[in-house]
Design a protein around this nucleic acid. Sequence first.
DNA 1: AACGGTTCCAACCGCTCGATC
DNA 2: GGATCGAGCGGTTGGAACCGT
Length: 296
Amino acid sequence: MGRAPCCDKANVKRGPWSPEEDATLKSYLQIHGTGGNWIALPTKAGLRRCGKSCRLRWLNYLRPDIKHGGFTEEEDNIICTLYVQMGSKWSAIASQLPGRTDNDVKNYWNTKLKRKLMAGKVCHKKLNDNDTLPSTTLLTQKAQSLDFHASQNQNSMPNLSTDACSEFNIDEKNMGFGLIHQFYSPQVKDVVKEVGASSRNNNHNHNPLMSLSQEGSSISDSSSIAVENNCVLLPEHAGNHESAEQVLMDFGFEFPYDLTNNLNCHERFGEFSPSGYSEWVDFSYVDIKPHLLNKN
DNA sequence: AACGGTTCCAACCGCTCGATC
DNA sequence: GGATCGAGCGGTTGGAACCGT
């Protein structure tokens, strides 16, 4: 048996709020507050609305401190930074933006900011066609030398150096997207490879660059992308290709692509790591290595 | 002007979590 | 300890507004 509905859906009004309803809710809340019970509020206020609907209307629209209108560039950067750090924790992100609601931030991200980011207008440097991509061979060697897919000390990961940050004109706050976009280039759009990384399962590194959601979520430990030889590598998704697809689309790769195209995948398979993929244990970590390595 | 496609955002849905009994 | 409930959250949807042809 499911849980009881919060209201009698047949007898509540749905859809857009009228100015009269807005005024009723606003004046009631200004006088009485929520009383700690949104469910009972509509009855008390004389509204034929669900309590949840009242709450949402108040929090997202009627609150006096709500900021309406366009986002500033500074807000854009804050959202980008926090999204990288936390993932889609919209309420947490919104809490850092006075006057903005989680719904606002979420809508803004989904409709504008993500695209703006892809177009190269926010906190990153986009590669030109002839820019040099990092060497996978070097990555592999470095990975092996660090032995980071062994059961090592979780705190042994090196931090991204200040030099590495400054090299690409990024700061530590926007590092995640900066690096991802560092890799984002027209030359890598056409072939996508999902890579098995089963040994990652035994290697829960607490990489300071990995977002909280990446560490905690079943889907988002994939949000890092490494690139070599015109290929994009994604960690395995425990059979969940949709998650991988979403990650790719989030980062601007066009759909359809060759995630499930076995022919292309195999053709490309040997190009970047003939010995297999155990080296690509932690893609969030791989994110930063090219820059560290290039400094060596 | 009319139409179709796209964008944007308010609102809803369903889930999780914590509090309470 | 389990059931129930409300609050809060993220994902999704519907439709109005906008834009291009």
